[in-house]
Computed example of a mutant assay.
Amino acid sequence: MPAHGLAILGSGIFAKEAHLPALAALGGAVDVKAVYSRSRKSSTEFAEAAQEKLGLKHKLDVYNEEDEGRSLDSLLARPDIKAVIVVLPITLQPDIVRKALAAGKHVLSEKPVAPDVASGRALIEEYEAKYKPQGLVWRVAENFETEPGFQAAQRIVHGGKLGTIKYYNARAYSWVDTHSKWYNTPWRTVPDYQGGFLLDGGVHTIAVLRKVLPSSFTSLSAYASLAKDILKPHDTINAVVASDDNSHGIIELSWGTPVQSRVTEAHSSISITGDKGWLEATRVGENIRVVVRTAVLDENGKPVWDEEKKLWKETEEVIEEKSCGVEKEIESWLRAVDGEDDGLDAPRGTLVDVAFIEAALNSKGTPVDLKKLVTG
């Protein structure tokens, strides 16, 4: 993979703590040249951190809205920068993506694709009509979609090992309080987008289900609520969802846990059940573990009874993969820029994730047609 002239747009926590280590792991595949942030201070601090983390011999060029001649437009005018990674607040990203595409840059923008379905759909349609024909590649950085552990789960389900999928379940709980570094990011403390942390973080869980399940979501019925006053407007969703293949599931998402034990004891996981077995995917430390259990069948396809244990026989397979989704999403995007498109993180796919959250926030128990919401 040839080195790509790259700029980072955004200098916050995730840019420093996730994107920089991922870029460092990719080594010679990238040539990071510049950083942009709205303030001089944050862009300068990021440039210093990047030089150390990436082992650069040169200093990153710093762009911001305070120094004359160093604006985002100036950065995007540079011919040696071919691609940008956008790691900015949710509501800012669509306009920045447009601006970067208009400047002829390939774009990887952080999830979610947009703050709402309508603006996301409009951006996607503009990209597909105007910029994709020019050969520009835009992907949405949904790192859960590219995690090797979740991809292993997808191969198992799509390969038929579990048989016909019947039902599924997802539980994602998180602890956020006023001491959290994520909460103290100004744009998260008082969010100007629907759902707060549910949109920011909830799309991850939906993305996994979207990739692992063998068929698309069709509808959902849900209730959304606020359990913790600091996390307005909503922090909890409970949804019942149906899929094209007549399977169905229950999805629980909450950032509004009252104490940390609600997170540690809640057993956050994703499980998929078919007529031949089931799997469960969980995070264990820095890894993603997938446990697959299937029925042992005889030559006639009938379950086998273990007389000694007085149980139906079953097999167990454990797959454990290191979590490295951010690295993999950047690598996948760069390969797409080089003409090797694996289909991961396509904007239209990630629009489904936003649609799910938006539908759940507004359902109030009434079924919502998810396909209609996505297509408009």
Score class of each variant (00 low, 15 high):
Ala34Ser: 13
Ala24Pro: 06
Ser119Cys: 10
Lys57Leu: 11
Lys322Met: 05
Val35Ala: 05
Ala153Gln: 00
Ile319Asp: 01
Asp80Phe: 12
Ser268Met: 09
Glu65Ile: 01
Lys310Gly: 08
Trp333His: 11
Gly339Ile: 03
Leu297His: 05
Glu331Gly: 04
Arg335His: 10
Thr185Glu: 14
Leu344Arg: 00
Lys99Pro: 06
Thr91Met: 09
Tyr223Asn: 14
Ile90Thr: 15
Leu123Ile: 08
Gly104Glu: 02
Lys322Leu: 10
Leu253Met: 13
Asp342Val: 09
Asp353Gln: 08
Pro214Glu: 06
Ala359Leu: 07
Trp138Asn: 12
Glu329Leu: 11
Val30Met: 02
Lys41Phe: 05
Ser271Cys: 11
Glu125Gly: 06
Trp182Cys: 01
Ser323Val: 12
Thr257Ala: 15
Leu75His: 05
Thr282Arg: 15
Ser243Leu: 14
Ser323Lys: 12
Ser268His: 05
Thr164Val: 13
Asp200Trp: 07
Glu66Ala: 03
Glu327Gln: 15
Glu331Lys: 14
Thr185Arg: 13
Tyr168Lys: 00
Ala103Thr: 07
Pro233Phe: 10
Asp298Lys: 14
Thr350Pro: 01
Phe217Ala: 11
Tyr223Gln: 14
Leu370Arg: 06
Ala29Arg: 15
Phe150Ala: 02
Gly149Gln: 11
Arg38Ile: 14
Thr44Glu: 13
Leu88Trp: 01
Arg188Lys: 13
Lys232Val: 11
Ala355Asn: 09
Asn300Cys: 01
Ala24Asn: 12
Gly196Met: 07
Gln93Trp: 03
Tyr167Gln: 07
Val176Phe: 04
Lys181Glu: 12
Lys132His: 09
Asn287Tyr: 14
Pro148Leu: 11
Ile81Pro: 06
Ile251Asp: 04
Ser71Asp: 14
Pro258Asn: 12
Trp255Asp: 00
Ser225Lys: 15
Ser269Cys: 14
Lys161Pro: 00
Glu286Lys: 15
Gly163Phe: 07
Leu162Tyr: 02
Lys166Glu: 10
Val292Asp: 05
Ser39Gly: 07
Leu253Pro: 01
Ser221Trp: 02
Thr294Asp: 00
Lys166Tyr: 00
Phe356Ala: 04
Gly120Thr: 12
Val241Phe: 02
Thr257Met: 15
Leu72Phe: 07
Tyr167Phe: 09
Ser42Gly: 01
Val241Met: 06
Arg38Pro: 02
Leu199Thr: 10
Leu279Ala: 04
Ser119Gly: 14
Gly159Thr: 08
Gly196Ile: 08
Ile90Glu: 01
Lys132Ser: 13
Val113Arg: 03
Asn287Leu: 08
Phe356Val: 08
Asp306Ile: 03
Gln51Tyr: 01
Met1Val: 11
Val176Arg: 05
Leu20Ser: 09
Ala77Ser: 15
Val284Cys: 03
Ile85Ala: 09
Asn184Pro: 08
Val296Ala: 06
Ser269Lys: 15
Ala29His: 08
Leu344Trp: 02
Glu265Thr: 14
Glu316Asp: 09
Ala118Gly: 07
Ala141Asn: 10
Trp187Thr: 11
Asp345Gln: 13
Asp338Arg: 00
Ser271Lys: 07
Leu373Pro: 00
Thr164Met: 03
Val284Phe: 09
His267Met: 14
Lys130Tyr: 03
Arg70Pro: 10
Asp67Ser: 15
Leu136Val: 10
